[in-house]
Design a protein around this nucleic acid. Structure first.
Lengths: 336, 336
DNA sequence: CTGTTAGCGCTTTCAG
DNA sequence: CTGAAAGCGCTAACAG
C-alpha cells in the first residue's frame, strides 16, 4: 500500500494540511483558486481520504453491520440487495456477519460492535436466540439497531417485516378452498416471530372455517434435515394422512416434497403443499407448490433507510417504527 | 455511543494509558499483577479496543472487500459462506460490494479501496468488464487481490476457480452418450473466463466424438431475460431443433426450461438439458436437468486463505497461485 | 483567506 | 516494570 495522504498534497502545494483539508471539503473560507488547485492535485495524485482517520475524528465509521442467520437463502440475499441499494446511495458500507442460526455465534459477533466498528446494525435473529441480553447491551451502549424479519418483542428497536399473519391466513384459506380439511403445519422454530405469526394465521384460518385446530397437526421441525425427513415421513404414513401441508419455510417444503416423492405420494392430487419461499424458480419448477413470496428486497431497503435516518437524525429521535410489507401469494396450479 | 477507551481504564487503574495498552496486549515487560488487574477491569467495563484507531496506528484494517457481480445467486452466496468461515477464524471482517454485472459500477466500487479501507480484495469480475485498468491501478498501489471464479488473464493475481473446461467436457460427453447429436451451447458472456472455458469443453467433447462443431449451435445470451427467452424460443422452433442444450449458467437453463414448457417440448424425452448450477434443489425439483455443481464454498475458503496468507506474509512474497477445484456432475435421471 | 494547535484512540519507541 | 511523548491521517476551533 503506497497511500497518498493530505500531507503529501500539502507539501506539493506548499500549503498547510488543514488548508488542503478545508479546500477539499469545500469550506466557505478557502479561495476558489486554492480549491481548484487542491482538487486538481488530488485528482492527479489519486488522493482518497483515509476513511478510518476521518472516522476516528468524526466519531463515526459510515459503515454498518448486517447480521443474518444465513446467506445461502434467497430471502436474505435479496434483502442484502435491498440494503446495498440504499447503502450505496447514502454513502454507507456494510459488513456481513452470519450466525448460522447459532446463539453463541450471535453473541460472539455482537462483541465486535462494542467500540466504533459500526455506526449501526441491521439485525435478523438466529432461530436459537431467545435471550436477548447481548442485544440490549449494545442498545444501552447507544448502538443504533433496526431489526428485520426475525424480530423480537423484547428488543426495543424499529422493526421491518412481512405480513406473516395475514398472508398465512389467506394462504391457508386458499388450501381450504381447494378442498383440504386436514392441514398440517410444519413449524420452524418456536423462537421465531415469523414462524409464530405464520402459525397464528394458519390457526385463525382453520377456526374461521370451522375446522378443528388440532395439536397433533402442528409439528416442530429443526435445523436438522434428517430429523425433519423422518418426522415428515412419519406424518405422511399415518392412517389419517394430512391432505395439505403448510411448511413455514422453503427448506421444509423441499423436504416434504422429497418425502412425497420417496413415498410415491402425488402432489397436488394426494396432498397440497404450501410454503413461504422467495426463490422464484421453486414455484416454477414445481407448479404444484403454492408459495408465499416476501418482498425481501423492499424489506432490506426499508430497514436500511430507517437505520440511516436514525443515524443521521439531528435530535436523538428514537421513535420506534414498525413497518409491515405485504407478501404475495403465488398460485401456479390452481386446477384440482 | 458511550465508548470505553484505554484512557478510561487507565484512570480507573491509576496507570498510564501506555501501560494499560501493553498489559492488555500481554507485553513481556508488564508485571503479572498489573496485567491481571487490567484484564479484570477491561472485562468488567466491557472494554473493546477501537479497531480503527488500532488500524490507523498499525496501518491495516483487518478487513477485506468482497466484490461480486450479484448475491442472489447460489454460487456467490455459498462462496461467501466459505469466505466467512475462514475470515472469522483469522480475525478478519469483510465488506460486500455488488457490481450488478455493470462495468461502471465496478469502477466506482474500486475507488473505495485507494486508501486503507481494506487490506485486500476478493474479486469476481462483472460480465461487462473487459478493460481491467481499474484493477491494475489498485494492484500498483499495493492492494492485495485474489481473483475467484470470474478471473482475467490480464490481471496478475492468484486465482481460484473450477475445472470449467474439464467438467464441461465430461458433461457434454454425457449428453452425447445419452444420444444427443445436435447439442446447442447457450453462452453467457464472451467476457467471462468461466463461460469461455465451458464452451471450450463443449467444443472439444463434440470434436472428440466426431460431431460437427457448428457455429450456428452456439448462441450468446445476455443479462436480459426477455431477450434470452425469445432467442431460445427461436432456436427450439427451428426445423432441426437441437436434441440437447448446454446452458452455461443456471438462469439460462431455467429460461430454457420455461420455453420448453410453453412450447410443449418434453424434457428429457424431446430434449436434454445440462447446466451449471449450484442450487441443490434445482436438480431435485426437476430431475430431468443434469447439473454441474461447483465447489462454491471451498472456492470461497481457498480464495480467502490465499489472500490472508498474502496479507500476513513476512516477505513480499508475491507468488501467483492458480488453484482449480473440481466440480461434480449430478445426474439424477439417466434413464432414457 | 491561511496556518497553528489539539486531539480522535491507539501503539511504540525511548527514558526512567 | 512503568510512563512520557510522538504519531497514524484527518478535522475543527481558533488565531492571525
Amino acid at each position: 500500500m503506497i497511500p497518498v495522504s493530505l500531507k503529501d498534497l500539502a507539501k506539493e502545494l506548499n500549503l498547510s494540511v488543514s488548508t488542503v483539508s478545508k479546500a477539499l471539503n469545500d469550506c466557505y473560507d478557502i479561495s476558489a483558486e486554492t480549491k481548484r488547485k487542491a482538487f486538481a492535485l488530488a485528482a492527479k495524485m489519486n488522493y482518497h481520504p483515509n476513511p478510518y482517520a476521518t472516522g476516528l475524528r468524526k466519531q463515526n465509521s459510515k459503515t454498518i453491520a448486517v447480521i443474518i442467520p444465513e446467506i445461502a437463502n434467497h430471502f436474505f440475499s435479496l434483502a442484502i440487495n435491498g440494503i446495498e441499494s440504499v447503502a450505496k446511495d447514502r454513502g454507507y458500507h456494510f459488513l456481513i456477519y452470519l450466525t448460522h442460526e447459532d446463539y453463541q455465534k450471535e453473541i460472539e459477533i455482537t462483541k465486535h460492535f462494542q467500540n466504533g466498528r459500526v455506526d449501526g446494525l441491521l439485525l435478523s435473529l438466529s432461530s436459537e436466540t431467545s435471550n436477548v441480553a447481548h442485544i440490549e447491551e449494545l442498545l444501552s451502549r447507544g448502538v443504533k439497531i433496526v431489526s428485520f424479519d426475525r424480530v423480537s418483542e423484547k428488543i426495543l428497536t424499529s422493526r421491518v417485516n412481512t405480513n406473516d399473519f395475514q398472508s398465512s391466513y389467506l394462504a391457508t384459506e386458499h388450501l381450504i378452498e381447494r378442498g383440504c380439511r386436514n392441514i398440517a403445519f410444519l413449524s420452524n422454530s418456536k423462537n421465531l416471530s415469523t414462524n409464530n405469526n405464520r402459525m397464528k394465521g394458519y390457526i385463525q384460518a382453520l377456526a374461521r372455517h370451522q375446522l378443528p385446530v388440532e395439536d397433533h397437526l402442528v409439528f416442530e421441525c429443526t435445523n436438522d434435515n434428517d430429523h425433519n425427513y423422518q418426522l415428515i415421513s412419519d406424518i405422511l404414513q399415518r392412517k389419517n394422512r394430512p391432505d395439505g401441508i403448510f411448511a413455514s419455510v422453503e427448506k421444509i417444503a423441499m423436504t416434504t416434497y422429497h418425502v412425497c416423492h420417496d413415498l410415491g405420494i402425488d402432489i397436488p392430487k394426494d396432498i397440497k403443499i404450501l410454503s413461504f419461499s422467495n426463490l422464484e424458480i421453486a414455484s416454477f419448477l414445481n407448479p404444484s407448490l403454492t408459495t408465499i413470496t416476501q418482498p425481501a428486497f423492499e424489506i432490506g431497503q426499508e430497514a436500511a433507510s430507517i437505520l440511516f435516518n436514525l443515524l443521521e437524525a439531528k435530535k436523538n429521535n428514537s421513535q420506534i417504527l414498525n413497518k409491515t410489507l405485504n407478501s404475495k401469494l403465488i398460485i401456479r396450479n390452481s386446477t384440482n
